[in-house]
C-alpha cells in the first residue's frame, strides 16, 4: 500500500492524522456547510447580520416557503420525468450496441466505436442550433419528450463505450460454446450475456441518472416554461426572483441536490465502479 499505512508510523503521526482528517473535511466542505446552515436560518438572522453563527432557531420554514411559494415541486417532478426515461432508453440502447461492438468482428467495428467515443466529447454548442431546430420542427420544443430524446441519443455514446468495454471483459467462451450448440444470436444476447450485465447496468444507471439530473445547458436550450423545466433550469430562474434572499436560495439548492446525493449514498459502490471503469486497466 502507498503511502505507508498510518498504523506503521509513530503514535504522534497517527494522532496527527486522525486530527487532520476531520479538519480537512470541514475545510473541504466549508462552502456547502455554510449554505446548509444558511438554509436553516430564519430571515431575521440574516437581517441582523448573523451570517456565520449558528441559527438563532432552526427554521425549516424556509423549506416550506420554497415548496409553497415556488414551482420547485413541479420542477423536481419534471426532472424525474426527464431523467428516468433517459436512463432506461440510453442504457437499453447501450446494451444492444455495446454487445454488437464487443462480440462481432466486422470491418466498421472500430470506426463506429470511435465515432461513439468522439461524439461523446464534442462541445454541446456545436449541436445546439441544429438540435433545437430539429426539436422545434418535430413539435417537441419545450416538452419533456423532446429533452429526454436528445439526452437518450447523446448519452448512448458514453453508455456504449462503457457497455462495450464491460462485455469485452466477459469470458468469450460462453458465447462460443452457445454458438456451437446452435443458439441464435438474439438468444445469446438475451439469455447469456444480458444476465451477466446486471452490475454494469446498475452502475451505468446510477451514473446516467446523476448526469441527466444535473444537466443545465440542454434544459435551458430545449425548455422554457415552468411546466416543463427541470430543477436545474428552474433554480436559475428562481435565483433571479429571490434576489438576496439567501435562506431561500440555499434551501432551494439543497432540495435540488438531494436526489442525486441520495442516489449516490444508496448506490455508492455501483456509482464508483461505473465512474472508474477503465481507470485501472488499459
Amino acid at each position: 500500500m502507498f503511502p505507508r499505512p498510518i498504523e506503521h508510523t509513530a503514535p504522534a503521526t497517527q494522532l496527527l492524522y486522525k486530527v487532520a482528517l476531520p479538519i480537512a473535511l470541514i475545510l473541504w466542505l466549508l462552502p456547502l456547510l455554510g449554505v446548509a446552515m444558511t438554509s436553516l436560518k430564519p430571515s431575521s438572522d440574516l437581517a441582523a447580520g448573523n451570517y456565520f453563527g449558528l441559527p438563532s432557531q432552526i427554521a425549516f420554514s424556509n423549506y416550506a416557503d420554497v415548496f409553497n411559494n415556488s414551482p420547485i415541486g413541479k420542477y423536481i417532478l419534471n426532472s424525474f420525468k426527464v431523467t428516468i426515461p433517459t436512463v432506461i432508453g440510453a442504457v437499453a440502447i447501450a446494451c444492444l450496441s455495446g454487445f454488437a461492438l464487443a462480440v462481432y468482428r466486422f470491418r466498421m467495428n472500430l470506426l463506429i466505436f470511435f465515432l461513439f467515443v468522439a461524439g461523446n466529447f464534442v462541445p454541446f454548442q456545436i449541436l445546439m442550433v441544429p438540435v433545437r431546430d430539429l426539436t422545434v420542427s418535430t413539435g417537441l420544443y419545450n416538452t419533456i419528450t423532446g429533452l429526454a430524446l436528445f439526452h437518450i441519443a447523446f448519452q448512448s455514446g458514453f453508455c456504449t463505450l462503457f457497455m462495450r468495454n464491460f462485455i469485452k471483459g466477459l469470458p468469450f467462451e460462453l458465447i462460443e460454446s452457445a454458438r456451437v450448440e446452435g443458439v441464435s444470436e438474439f438468444r445469446i444476447f438475451w439469455y447469456i450475456v444480458l444476465p451477466l450485465m446486471r452490475s454494469a447496468i446498475a452502475a451505468l444507471s446510477v451514473l446516467v441518472f446523476t448526469f441527466i439530473w444535473n444537466d443545465y445547458f440542454w434544459a435551458t436550450v430545449l425548455t422554457t416554461s415552468a411546466e416543463t423545466q427541470p430543477v436545474t433550469a428552474g433554480l436559475y430562474s428562481l435565483n433571479g426572483q429571490w434576489i438576496a434572499q439567501w435562506q431561500l436560495v440555499s434551501a432551494g439548492s439543497i432540495i435540488a441536490a438531494m436526489p442525486p446525493v441520495l442516489m449516490f449514498f444508496l448506490m455508492q459502490r455501483h456509482f464508483i465502479a461505473g465512474l472508474t471503469l477503465g481507470a485501472t486497466k488499459g
Binding site: N214, Y236, A256, P260
Partner: peptide, 11 residues
C-alpha cells in the same frame, strides 16, 4: 455529485 448549478450558487 451535486449539480454545477448548485455548486455555482454555493460559491
Amino acid at each position: 455529485v451535486i449539480s454545477q448549478v448548485v455548486v455555482g450558487l454555493i460559491f
